[in-house]
Simulated assay, not measured.
Amino acid sequence: MDALFSWFSSEEEERNFLDFMAHFMLFMAACTFLSLLFQNVPYGRYASSKYGFPVDVRLAWFVQELPSLLVPLCLVFWASSSKMSHLPNQLLVAMFLCHYFQRALIYPLLIRGGKATPFASFALAFVFCVYNGFLQVRYLSHHADYPADWVTRPLFVVGSALWLTGWLMNLHSDHILRNLRKPGETGYKIPRGGMFEYVSGANFLGEITEWAGFALAGQSVHSLAFALFTAVVLCSRAAAHHRWYLTKFEDYPKSRKALIPFVF
């Protein structure tokens, strides 16, 4: 696999390329923020046939998320990964792989019902996962250079704790959403329990917290770009859900916010 990187004339040139990828993701986050002011992300309850033919939701989640697992594994085991002998790099890559192992291999199997995903949304998610999986793990496995005491520094400790908190919040919130309806029931229900008592987008809050912690622990423009792009997309999603819930249910809790407890 190292042959794929032979077209870079030096390690510095490859590092500059990864930096460019990160800055381009920041640019795309800004563009996405502007576009989402005028439309919702077209999947789930906001899906539309104008974004392409429908893809089975389980298949879509499995295929689109899989590159975020397979690309990093290939980079770690089949390419030069000189930094993977260092504990900070190992832990940060483990955080990334832990999330996408669950998201690609377990989450699709747990989906109950769910609307098909428009092909355009599926294709864009797939491309993003290839792009981001390569960016995050190539940087961490081959370029990121952390001091030996990095894992004991406050920012890494706090960031890791945030990542774990967000990951658990995301899993718990997904569990609540999956069990809203009893077997045979249809239609939408108000989610209750966990962080849903405070916000409409508890699952989104969990994932945003997760990658904010990852960025804090990693302290790189690469992880920052990922965290910001995720926040832009999921903030829009949470706000749209909140507006939809308020319109759909007359008894929806008025004190519940969209994404940030007691604030927004």
Rank of each mutant, 00 (worst) to 15 (best):
N132I: 01
G206N: 01
F134I: 00
V137Y: 03
H86F: 10
S223D: 14
R181L: 12
N179I: 10
W78I: 14
A215S: 08
G201T: 06
D2S: 04
G44S: 08
D2C: 00
F5W: 00
V157F: 00
A3K: 15
L37P: 06
P72G: 08
A227D: 11
A29C: 14
L26D: 03
Q136C: 01
A125V: 09
F53W: 10
Y43R: 14
R15F: 14
G193H: 07
Q136S: 01
N203V: 12
W61G: 03
V63M: 08
I106M: 13
G187V: 13
V93W: 07
S220V: 08
T165C: 05
Y100Q: 08
G113C: 05
Y252F: 09
N40K: 04
G184T: 09
A94E: 06
C235P: 00
G194W: 00
L92E: 09
F33Q: 15
M84G: 09
L216H: 10
L140F: 09
M95Q: 10
I190H: 05
F214N: 11
L26F: 12
V63I: 13
A215W: 08
A94S: 02
Q219W: 04
A238H: 07
L59T: 14
W163V: 03
C235K: 11
V157G: 09
S49E: 10
F122E: 09
A94G: 07
E197T: 05
V93D: 00
N132C: 00
A227V: 12
E210Y: 03
F122T: 08
R256H: 09
L4P: 06
F262A: 12
R192M: 08
S220P: 06
T152F: 09
A231P: 08
P88E: 03
T32A: 12
Q102H: 10
A47N: 13
L155N: 10
D149F: 02
V199F: 06
L69M: 07
W244H: 13
I176T: 04
Y198W: 02
E13Q: 15
L73R: 02
S121Y: 09
M84Y: 03
L73F: 10
H142F: 01
A225H: 05
W167Q: 15
Y188M: 02
